[in-house]
Amino acid sequence: MDLFDSLGDNSEVVTAFFLTHAMSVIGAIIILIAGYIIAGWAGKRVKDATSKSGKFDDTLVPVLSQTTRVVILVITFLLVLGQFGVQTASIIAVLGAAGLAVGLALQGTLSNVAAGMMLLILRPFKVGDAVNVAGTFGIVDEVRLFTTEMHSFDNIGITMPNSRVWGQEIQNLSKFENRRVDMEFGISYRDDMDKAIALIKEVLDADERVMAEPEPLIAVSELGDSSVMIRVRPWTETKNVWPLRYHITKSIKEKFDSNGVSIPFPQRDVHLFKKN
Score class of each variant (00 low, 15 high):
M1R: 11
E12H: 13
T15K: 12
L19C: 09
H21Y: 15
M23T: 11
M23H: 13
I26S: 05
I33H: 11
I38S: 13
I38F: 15
A39M: 01
W41Q: 02
R45C: 09
V46R: 07
D58K: 14
V61T: 00
P62F: 06
V63M: 06
V63E: 02
R69W: 00
V70M: 11
V71A: 14
I72S: 01
V74C: 14
I75A: 06
L78D: 00
G82R: 05
G85I: 06
V86Q: 08
Q87I: 08
Q87K: 08
Q87G: 11
L95S: 09
L95D: 03
L104G: 11
L106W: 10
Q107H: 12
Q107S: 13
S111T: 07
N112P: 01
N112T: 01
A115Q: 01
L119F: 04
P124Q: 03
V127I: 14
V127T: 12
A130P: 07
I139K: 05
I139M: 05
E142H: 05
V143C: 00
F146L: 11
T147Y: 05
S152D: 05
D154A: 07
N155K: 11
N155I: 11
T159H: 09
G167T: 05
G167Y: 03
G167S: 05
E169D: 07
S174M: 04
N178Y: 07
D182W: 02
D182P: 05
E184M: 08
I187Y: 00
D191S: 12
D192Q: 00
D192C: 06
D194F: 08
A196S: 03
D207R: 02
E208P: 02
R209P: 02
E213T: 09
V220L: 11
E222L: 08
E222H: 12
M229G: 04
I230H: 04
E237R: 14
K239I: 09
V241C: 08
V241L: 06
H247N: 10
K250H: 14
K250A: 14
S251P: 04
E254T: 12
N259K: 08
Q267G: 15
Q267C: 15
R268F: 14
K274P: 02
N276C: 15
N276W: 10
N276D: 15
